[in-house]
Simulated scan of single mutants.
Amino acid sequence: MSTPTIGDVAREAGVSTATVSRALSGSLRVSGATARRVRETATRLGYSGNPIARALRKNATGNVGVLVPSVSNPFFTMLVDEIEKHMVTMGINLYLCTSRDDHDVEAARLASLTQGSVDGILVSPCDAARSGAALAAAQTKLPVVQLDRSADGVDIDWVGLDDADAMRTIIEHLASRGVKRAALVTSSARNSSGRLRTAFAVAAGTQHGITLDSDQIFDGEFSTGWGTEAATRLVSQGDLPDAIICTDDQIAIGVMQELKRQGIRVPGDVLVTGLDDVPHATLIDPPLTTVRQPVGDIAATAVDLLATKLRGEERSIRKISLQGTLVERESTAN
């Protein structure tokens, strides 16, 4: 029989993996009834809340490396925070590195982490096409798990958002608002998430009767600056669509700031959507409709995947997609 995982406990108890982690650590954020149900389920399945700690006691450092493209992007700040919450409850040290969105820097960071400072690595690759070689090399020395983004051509565990479901959810929401034409502001050139979201947005648009013309698909980077620039280009065309779909919240915030500067009303003149549900999504005026990423569950699942590798369990490579949740706010109000 295989060793039970945090995901098994979550399914049996009817809660998220993040809730399981909090309940087993004694967090006050979980109600007494839920915590009891989780503990009883964990006991019945034979799950212990410290799989990484048990594994690391057999290894050298008690440390896990986390490598993300940037901490200036609030999504990665949220993700690292959730990972750290799980690590703290297990008594594990987290070594945080950033690649500065540069695959050469990323390769150097991975090489450094494999020199004995950590026992495993959680990584969000910055470049789908060019991160693979360094990841493959790192995996020959240490257990590696990808999260959020992934690299092409490597057989390495991955957990992240179900991008197809997220974009379908946004398109269906816009269709329900009567949208017929939409612009897309994205970042698909280098990272896997943007590439997938772009393709799935176009496909879902076709399915639901929303036209995304090629001259109104703006491809740049995940940043407010790019959102501002894309909005400027779109407005200069003189033909505003019914909606602007942004493949992350940072882009959407930049778009909305520029539209407001030019006197274009959201949602009165055009609807705007984002993706991630970063804290600033509620602070922008008007608040942003978006898809909330299951950041806690992504973090907990990634930690769990790393734990099985550290225990030396033989299993197939896992690719786990988790669904997000539509959060409707005023930027798409009727």
Rank of each mutant, 00 (worst) to 15 (best):
G120S: 10
I121M: 06
I121Y: 06
I121Q: 05
I121F: 06
I121D: 06
L122A: 03
L122I: 06
S124C: 13
S124H: 08
P125E: 03
P125N: 03
P125W: 06
P125V: 00
C126A: 12
C126E: 09
C126F: 12
C126Y: 11
D127P: 14
A129P: 11
A129T: 09
R130Q: 12
S131L: 07
G132L: 00
G132A: 00
A133L: 08
A134L: 07
A134N: 08
L135K: 00
L135V: 01
L135M: 03
L135I: 11
A137M: 11
A137Q: 14
A138W: 04
A138H: 04
Q139K: 14
Q139R: 14
Q139M: 09
Q139H: 12
T140M: 12
K141N: 11
K141C: 11
K141L: 13
L142A: 03
P143V: 03
V144C: 10
V144A: 08
V144P: 14
V144G: 10
V144L: 09
V145K: 01
V145Y: 02
Q146R: 06
Q146K: 02
Q146V: 02
L147T: 00
L147P: 05
R149V: 09
R149A: 11
R149I: 10
S150K: 15
S150A: 14
S150F: 15
A151I: 06
G153I: 01
V154K: 03
D155C: 11
I156D: 13
I156E: 14
W158T: 01
W158C: 05
W158I: 01
V159D: 10
V159L: 10
V159Q: 07
G160V: 05
L161F: 05
L161I: 00
L161N: 05
L161C: 03
D162P: 10
D162E: 08
D162G: 06
D165R: 15
D165A: 15
